[in-house]
Amino acid sequence: MSYHKLAVIGEVGVGKTQLINTLSSIDPLLTEAKSSIDIGKKFTTVGIEYGRINLDSDTALGLYGVPGQERFSFLWDFVNSNLWGLVLLIRFQAELHLENMDHLLEFFAPRENGVACLVALTHCEDGNLEARNSAAKKIQARLNNHGLISPVLFVDARQRESAESILHALNAINRFHN
């Protein structure tokens, strides 16, 4: 069995659960609880969520959704080994929350570990071109600070084709960087 791991990391309400739901070949395993803060939905993920893409009878890509908040860093350890890809999900909004991005990049160290990495901006369907451009540039500057030349994608986690652009980009990065 050839098994590969994709880690999807993001804060509450960013769209991890939706993304894994959209991509997974199996019913995802979710651990949800009532949300303690107003995030526009009643339940939120409190642990690792798991989905899987079955590519054929002996090849699969496991999808691991992990909360991005530092208090869940004990879960990061669990996921951070032999990764095929790392996706940081960030919610597009007027004030981007990028404070945690540095912690995550230091912990997962995709450059040092040779792991294909990208940032996916979600909830940007209504964002104007200028605002999206500015957000992408801010994030790319942060990535550069960690020695990473990585893409910033605009993803609608509900749309299969849009969600698959993450897989396509990571597949291409893995092919050409190795």
Partner: peptide, 16 residues
């Protein structure tokens, strides 16, 4: 920046 360019499969592959 995919605000400037279409986020197509060709674009992603070629850029990578």
């Amino acid at each position: 920046s995919f605000a400037d360019m279409p986020q197509t499969k060709s674009m992603l592959s070629l850029s990578a």
